[in-house]
């Protein structure tokens, strides 16, 4: 009897912990959405207009259009670089690198992946920013600077994840291709096909991380709510606005609610991306597992 009770308590305790965790996600979605209802009701489609003047006394505007576009442009631009470079490095590590090279490079990437994003922000402002000024940019904090720092943040992740998926390709596939007379590129094609689920997963995660990253864009992007026209323009993505204003806003105000709407956008973006990632990887996996 005693043992049964112990077992029962144990099982219910653990399931409680799991329920809490499951509830957390729903609570997050719920709270962020309910707090943004006021803005959605009062501002409506104006939320997607280009102008954001939240503290203008007579006629405040709460349009996230420009920020959203800037966020997307910055994310796409940076992701493309990170994808290409990360894939190249991973292929090099997988196919050509000497053991020593591989070990050293992976180790350094691991350490860089541990650098807190606020520290990378500091690097962007104090070190890269100075270079930009010396090279004649009119703002130390700008689109390009943010993009470089974001690349440093996500490249280790992209590279090591891609590398790991490439390492998992079974030898017999490579040998099979070679035995048919395939050259390097044709063999690589087979390996990439096999590693595709892992690589796509890495790519979309990189995109997601850049889109949601706050500290770096807050510190390095420059903060101007203008649509980016050149690489050296200062910009303000969604998360930067959210990070800088949410701490100072009056709780319950329209401005507060509009900021929650931004949070809601960021959250939905990452949830949608996550869903998409799962879908695509599952589809790709059908080509690998029977």
């Amino acid at each position: 009897m005693m043992r049964k009770t112990v077992s029962f308590i144990f099982v219910s305790l653990t399931s409680l912990a799991a329920v809490i965790v499951a509830a957390a996600l729903f609570a997050i979605v719920f709270f962020i959405f309910t707090e943004s209802i006021r803005a959605i009701k009062e501002v409506g489609f104006g939320l997607f207009s280009p102008n954001w003047y939240p503290v203008w006394e007579t006629d405040p505007e709460f349009g996230v259009g420009t920020m959203l576009l800037n966020s997307l442009i910055l994310t796409v631009w940076t992701s493309v670089w990170v994808w290409t470079i990360g894939l190249s490095v991973a292929i090099y590590l997988h196919k050509y690198a000497l053991n020593k090279e591989r070990e050293v490079l992976l180790r350094i990437l691991e350490y860089v992946s541990g650098i807190p994003s606020v520290v990378l922000g500091l690097f962007g402002v104090l070190i890269l920013g100075n270079w930009f000024l010396r090279l004649g940019a009119w703002s130390a904090q700008n689109f390009l600077n943010a993009s470089i720092v974001l690349s440093v943040l996500t490249l280790p992740f992209m590279t090591s994840l891609t590398f790991q998926s490439l390492e998992k390709v079974p030898r017999q596939l490579v040998e099979g291709a070679i035995a048919l007379g395939a050259k390097d590129l044709a063999v690589m094609w087979i390996e990439l096909r096999y590693a595709a689920p892992g690589i796509v997963n890495a790519m979309l995660s990189v995109f997601n991380r850049i889109f949601g990253e706050t500290m770096i864009v807050l510190m390095v992007a420059g903060g101007a709510n203008l649509l980016v026209r050149s690489l050296l323009d200062p910009v303000r993505p969604l998360t930067a606005t959210l990070g800088s204003e949410i701490g100072e806003v009056a709780v319950g105000s329209l401005h507060y609610s509009a900021l929650f709407f931004i949070a809601f956008l960021v959250l939905s973006g990452s949830l949608i991306l996550n869903l998409l990632t799962n879908r695509i990887t599952r589809k790709l996996e059908r080509w690998i597992k029977g």
Partner: peptide
């Protein structure tokens, strides 16, 4: 995969 700022806002 939810960005950390969202946890802050929450």
């Amino acid at each position: 995969s939810v960005p950390s700022i969202v946890y802050g806002v929450f």
